[in-house]
Structure formats: structure tokens, C-alpha cells
């Protein structure tokens, strides 16, 4: 049987198509303003890559903050549960998941593949990928480079602010004082790691720790975070897709639980051409 998980995040949309234990296709692309239109496009692309038709997909679970806008999904599950399932599948011994997304940051405590506790910040950009984005823009650097650069520092600058706006001003101040970019970036990553650590610490960080989301791709952030935690973290081969992967696994579980003959009841009326809201959007 074939299952799909679609994760519409605030900045990136991900799709995973899975057949039994094999991942048939992965799609990662920026989220547009119109989730539904995009959802249609990405799933088409994923179907193409996996070489399957829409009808061949037995069950689709949508997650992420745009999950309610996926009209052809059979079920919606929160991204917290999906991330946890995706990570547990990849790392069965995981106890703590730290997910650093574009607009939020989550900590999930896992015991035997079940959520024991979780925590989430969404009050402001501090502690999220957005913080790093703003910083790289301020410094005129590429987002993917700043982690690497921060590791070249031997003397991280004192950055006390994790409020994005204040930090921007502080960076400019440090630059005017002649502090090097490496040291500034090191200071920023250190400050961000501190902020994430104190937030996730509320659910008590225990081994194994897996880091996911865009933040996991920033080697500087990972290093400073590991320093704060006191041991190393694990990173999935593709840290962006754990939510979509989890959604596809949950899709499979839902079908198993219901039994194939009852599948029809769970499955909502959905057809590929149902995604004709292009007209609606125009």
C-alpha cells in the first residue's frame, strides 16, 4: 500500500510518499501564500517523482500549520505528533526532539514512541529560523553559510539580545566597534542556543536528542546547542522532512488500525480533479 504525508510549514512545504518501509519520493519547496494551490502542485510533483497515480495513494495525512487547507487529505494531525512519529521511526531510541522551524521552535519529549510532553514558542521570532534569516540578511551573508562561519571564531562576541530587533542593532554596534564577523556570528549562535536550551529545558532534555527542522542544517547552532546540553545530538539525513514522514507513517497506522475493508469509510471522497480550485482562487 502507498501512503502520503504532506507538511505545510510556515516557510517550506514537504511531501513524503511511502510504500511499506520504502520512501518513494520526497519533495521540499517553499510555501506560497495560497496553501491549497500549492498543496495541489507539490503533491502532483511528488506523484510524478514516485511514479504513482493519485488513486494509488491509499491514505493521505496533512500536517503543519497549513494542514487544514489541504482539501484532498484524509486526515489532519498536528505537526507535533507527526514530527515525533517521523523521528521515532528513524531513531527508535529518541527521547527528546528539538525542532527549529521557520517561525517556531518546539521541544518534544518522547517515551516509547509516544509524546510525554512538549513545548512550543511562537510569541516572537527569537529562537527560530527567522532570527537567523534576519541576521544573515543584516550581515549580507547567505543563510546556509553563517553556521560554518561562526565556527571559525575563537572569541565569540558578547551578544546579550535574542530579541531579533535588538540583536540587529547590537550587531551593528559590534561591527562599529570593529568586532569580526566570525566573532559576531559565534556570539549570535551562542545566544540563540542559550535561548533554545532554556525553552526546551522545561521538558527536561534527555538522550537521545534528535534535532530537526531548518535549524538542524546550521552546523554552528548545533555545535553551540550541544555545548549547552552537554552531549551530542543526532540529525536525520534530511532534517526537514520528519513531519511529512511522520504523517505518512500515521497514514499507514490509521489504515492498519481501521482494517482495509473499513478504509473506504475513513477515506473521504477525494479525487485529483477535486483540486480545481484554481478557478476559485482566480
Amino acid at each position: 500500500m502507498i501512503f502520503a504525508g504532506i507538511d505545510i510549514g510556515s516557510t517550506i512545504t514537504k511531501v513524503v510518499i511511502k510504500q511499506e518501509e520504502e520512501i518513494r519520493a520526497i519533495i521540499i519547496q517553499p510555501t506560497g501564500a495560497e496553501h491549497r494551490r500549492l498543496a495541489h502542485e507539490v503533491i502532483k510533483k511528488a506523484l510524478n517523482n514516485a511514479d504513482v497515480t493519485f488513486d494509488q495513494i491509499d491514505f493521505i495525512v496533512a500536517t503543519g500549520y497549513g494542514r487544514i487547507n489541504v482539501p484532498f487529505a484524509d486526515a489532519q494531525v498536528s505537526e507535533i505528533t507527526c514530527h515525533m512519529r517521523g523521528v521515532s521511526w528513524l531513531f527508535p531510541n529518541v527521547r527528546t526532539v528539538i525542532d527549529i522551524g521557520g517561525q517556531d521552535c518546539k521541544g518534544i519529549k518522547v517515551v516509547n514512541g509516544k509524546i510525554r510532553n512538549f513545548i512550543m514558542n511562537d510569541k516572537c521570532a527569537a529562537g527560530t529560523g527567522r532570527f537567523l534569516e534576519v541576521i544573515s540578511e543584516t550581515l549580507g551573508l547567505k543563510l546556509e553559510d553563517i553556521g560554518e562561519i561562526s565556527l571559525r571564531s575563537n572569541d565569540p562576541a558578547g551578544i546579550s539580545k535574542t530579541c531579533t530587533i535588538f540583536a540587529e542593532q547590537e550587531i551593528l554596534l559590534r561591527l562599529s566597534e570593529g568586532v569580526s564577523i566570525e566573532d559576531i556570528l559565534a556570539g549570535l549562535h551562542k545566544a540563540l542556543a542559550g535561548r533554545i536550551y532554556s525553552m526546551v529545558g522545561k521538558i527536561k532534555i534527555e538522550k537521545d536528542v534528535v534535532i530537526t527542522g531548518g535549524g538542524a542544517k546550521n552546523i554552528g547552532l548545533c555545535k553551540y546547542l550541544e555545548k549547552r546540553i552537554g552531549f551530542s545530538m543526532l540529525t536525520p539525513p534530511e532534517p526537514l522532512i520528519t513531519g511529512a514522514l511522520g504523517a505518512s507513517i500515521i497514514a499507514q497506522e490509521m489504515v492498519t488500525k481501521a482494517g482495509e475493508e473499513k478504509l473506504a469509510h475513513i477515506k473521504k471522497e477525494r479525487k485529483l480533479e477535486a483540486v480545481t480550485f484554481f478557478d476559485e482562487a482566480d
Partner: peptide, 8 residues
């Protein structure tokens, strides 16, 4: 401050 916050 961090250490207090991380305890909730």
C-alpha cells in the same frame, strides 16, 4: 536566568 527558565 536561563537555568530557572529551563525548570519552567
Amino acid at each position: 536566568l536561563d537555568y530557572a527558565e529551563s525548570d519552567g
